[in-house]
């Protein structure tokens, strides 16, 4: 069942086209990752989904209804920055947003209790947000977006700037949202985050999806079973030798990478480059990072 559907969305600012027939959908209880370089159109997409911005063409529906001010109750938005009141306690922040979203009386107290439980905020519920560490602030930042039990939660780079432990904690929380019946749209620059969390990933470039699917589907974009990362002063010789074996090569992030059509052990690959000076060589599995680079290079 589709909860969020984006269809042929177009948006331009002056002569600059930001969204170019963008389409994707997020199913119930799914976590959809929207990846893309800066300027690809992620923020514009979020602004349209939150009804902050009108699209020039195309449609967005949430739960079957076109997005408008009336659908704001169905969307929870977690900005990248900590956008809660720092001088209020965690509980006061949740209370405030609960009232803004129309909860009343016992429903506010009940929802606050649920969120304190969900985000494990017991110890800090009466602590000012300004006194919390970055990880706990992030939790409050997300908690207030869930106060009205939205059907879609938009997370804009939810773990940016967090240490690894806090990041893992938040990942566990985000995985838990699915069990609570919330569909998640997540934007991130961290490939590992998308790999760990997302059931479906869309790669956005120049305002349109250039690749989409599960992690395995995207990995299949890279025509290789394994990758060899090579550093050499004579890259030309390396590439020529690789071509002679029928191996393609790429420059991913400035590094020379050979696409191996079959799996190999390291010494076999080293052996094939006898006579060429190599300063480093390693084998890697194909990851989302490589699929992303492959897709954006083609796109």
């Amino acid at each position: 069942m589709t909860v969020l559907e984006v269809c042929d969305l177009e948006k331009s600012f002056g002569n600059r086209t930001v969204l170019d027939k963008l389409s994707f959908s997020v199913g119930k209880n799914a976590i959809y990752g929207l990846l893309g370089p800066n300027g690809a159109g992620k923020t514009t997409t979020i602004n349209i989904l939150c009804s902050l911005l009108d699209a020039d063409a195309g449609s967005v529906s949430i739960g079957g209804d076109s997005v408008s001010e009336r659908t704001r109750h169905r969307v929870g938005f977690v900005p990248q920055e900590i956008c809660v009141y720092q001088d209020l306690t965690c509980r006061e922040n949740v209370f405030f947003f609960a009232r803004i979203y129309g909860l009343q009386g016992a429903a506010i107290a009940d929802r606050t209790k649920e969120l304190v439980e969900m985000f494990d905020l017991h110890e800090y519920e009466d602590t000012k947000v300004a006194s919390l560490s970055g990880g706990w602030r992030r939790r409050v930042n997300i908690a207030v977006a869930l106060v009205h039990s939205p059907s879609v939660l938009i997370l804009d780079e939810p773990t940016a700037g967090l240490d690894i432990e806090a990041r893992y904690d938040l990942w566990n929380l985000i995985r838990g949202f699915r069990e609570g019946g919330v569909s998640v749209l997540l934007t991130t620059h961290q490939m590992e985050e998308a790999e760990q969390l997302c059931s479906c990933i869309g790669i956005l470039q120049n305002g349109r999806i250039v690749a989409e699917g599960s992690l395995d589907t995207l990995r299949a974009l890279v025509p290789a079973k394994q990758l060899a990362v090579i550093e050499s002063d004579d890259e030309h010789a390396v590439r020529s030798r690789a071509e002679s074996f029928g191996w393609e090569s790429r420059h991913y992030g400035g590094r020379l990478i050979l696409l191996l059509p079959e799996r190999h052990v390291l010494h076999e690959v080293v052996h094939r480059f006898n006579g060429i000076p190599l300063s480093a060589i390693s084998l890697q599995e194909v990851g989302l990072e490589h699929a992303y680079l492959e897709a954006t290079a083609k796109g």
């Binding site: 902050l52 704001r72 956008c83 809660v84 720092q86 803004i100 979203y101 129309g102």
Partner: peptide, 11 residues
Amino acid sequence: RRTLRRLLVSP
């Protein structure tokens, strides 16, 4: 504090 953005996307 960017809370304005949060208020503007609320009802």
